[in-house]
């Protein structure tokens, strides 16, 4: 019963090891991985640990883009300067687990686990972020909903590693609301992320825990983009607009009944949160 662990100190080394040993299981912050080990759902024989690769924990602003290393922890996202650059992502990261979990868990891990309830996924989707995936000889970049193909399923290949996330740094309003049945440390029952991008006249609306992966409320996005007075930065706030938007968002949800909630409540919750997100985005400019 031998288990080996490899702890490379550079990305290049990690990708080489992975190219030679595609069966290796990748250990990031361990906050999902170790739970699976403890419950016997994962019995790793050979592990590639990312903990010593400093470059995966770096971030960089270049022009209108923020590059986040995949090893950046939730705690780092919650604090300045990142919290000021992407406040919606900071808000989502703050809802992850406990302080201990946020100190260990990483944004790359949240993507790799690809849980329908992954807290940062809806806001990354709404921000139009792209996942950067590297192997020894290639780099590719995908939107969140191209990367995640189903519950806990991604397009990640055995020799590939999530190396970073590219987030457009635009002048935008960002809201994130999470509903859970406990006030902290809770798996979400429903989440709504809303981004109104004043630079590119784009609306992003991502939903969590109401489908097999993070859901993009496309119709709601299009409808709202058409209603916003972009020049005057005016968000429609009349009752009929709030109702239409929240109904369109709810329609994008494909929730199920499970032990955490019911489909009916989840659909209702995203509708309520969508309306509140819109109101908050508007209030931010008052």
């Amino acid at each position: 019963m031998v288990m080996s662990i490899n702890r490379p100190t550079s990305l290049e080394e990690a990708l080489q090891i992975l190219a030679d040993n595609p069966e290796m299981e990748i250990l990031g912050g361990g906050t999902d991985f170790m739970v699976e080990v403890n419950y016997g759902h994962r019995r790793p024989v050979s592990i590639l640990s990312l903990s010593r690769i400093a470059e995966l924990r770096d971030f960089e602003v270049s022009g209108s883009e923020l590059y986040l290393g995949s090893g950046i922890t939730f705690s780092k996202l919650v604090a300045p300067p990142l919290a000021e650059l992407v406040p919606g992502l900071a808000q989502a990261a703050r809802t992850v687990g406990s302080p201990q979990i946020r100190n260990a868990g990483t944004i790359g891990g949240n993507l790799a686990t690809a849980s329908p309830a992954g807290d940062t996924l809806p806001i990354l989707l709404a921000l139009d972020a792209r996942v950067e995936i590297s192997s020894l000889n290639s780099v590719r970049s995908l939107r969140i909903n191209e990367f995640i193909t189903g519950p806990k399923q991604t397009v990640l290949q055995p020799q590939e590693l999530i190396t970073g996330i590219r987030v457009p740094l635009h002048d935008s309003s960002q809201e994130f609301l999470k509903v859970g049945t406990r006030n902290a440390m809770v798996i979400s029952v429903a989440t709504v992320a809303l981004v109104i991008d004043w630079d590119s006249y784009r609306v992003g609306c991502g939903l969590g825990s109401v489908g097999p992966g993070p859901m993009e409320a496309l119709e709601a996005e299009r409808w709202l983009a058409a209603k916003i007075d972009w020049g005057n930065r005016r968000i429609p706030l009349e009752e009929s607009a709030l109702r239409s938007f929240s109904e369109l968002v709810a329609r994008a949800a494909r929730p199920i009944d499970d032990h955490r909630s019911t489909a009916e409540y989840r659909r209702h919750a995203v509708a309520v949160c969508a309306r509140r997100a819109l109101e908050r985005a508007s209030h931010a400019y008052e």
């Binding site: 808000q91 703050r94 809802t95 994130f176 609301l177 999470k178 509903v179 859970g180 406990r182 006030n183 902290a184 809770v186 979400s188 989440t191 309520v272 949160c273 509140r276 109101e279």
Partner: peptide, 13 residues
């Protein structure tokens, strides 16, 4: 806001 219903999720109005 953390001391309101929904807590850290900041979903309450």
């Amino acid at each position: 806001p953390l001391a309101m219903p929904g807590g850290a999720g900041r979903c309450s109005d």
